[in-house]
C-alpha cells in the first residue's frame, strides 16, 4: 500500500526521510492515481465485455467495488472519528496512569 505520505510535520522538523522527499511523494501520488484508474477501467471493461461474473445485481455495476471502497472508507473515517469522540475517556478513567507503567522492581519478573 504505497499510499499517502502527506504529513505537514515533516517539513517543520526538516527531517526528511526517503519517503518525505517531495519528488518521491509526487511519484507515489501519481502511482496511486494511475493504478486506481487502471483497475477502474479494467473493471468497466470486464463488466461490459461480460467476462466478469457478478454474484448479485448490485456488483454488476461496473465500478461497484471502487465505489464501495470509497464510500465505506468515508463512512469508516467519519464513524471512527465520531466513535472516538464519543467513547474516548481520559487515560485515567479506569486505572491510574501509574498502573500502566512497569515499575522497576529491581528484580526482573519470574
Amino acid at each position: 500500500m504505497s499510499d499517502n505520505h502527506h504529513t505537514p510535520a515533516s517539513e517543520e522538523t526538516g527531517d526528511t526521510g526517503f519517503f518525505e522527499k517531495p519528488g518521491m511523494r509526487k511519484i507515489l501520488w501519481v502511482a496511486l492515481l494511475a493504478s486506481c484508474a487502471i483497475f477502474a477501467a479494467l473493471g468497466i471493461y470486464g463488466m461490459v465485455a461480460g467476462w466478469m461474473h457478478p454474484y448479485f445485481t448490485l456488483d454488476g455495476l461496473p465500478v461497484f467495488y471502487a465505489l464501495a471502497g470509497a464510500i465505506v472508507a468515508a463512512v469508516l473515517g467519519a464513524g471512527g472519528r465520531l466513535l472516538s469522540e464519543a467513547l474516548t475517556k481520559p487515560s485515567d478513567y479506569y486505572d491510574s496512569p501509574a498502573d500502566e507503567t512497569r515499575p522497576d522492581d529491581g528484580e526482573g519478573r519470574p
Binding site: N4, L33, G69, A70
Partner: peptide
C-alpha cells in the same frame, strides 16, 4: 478496486 479506492480516499 476496493483497496485502491479506499486508499485513495
Amino acid at each position: 478496486q476496493l483497496i485502491l479506492f479506499a486508499v485513495l480516499l
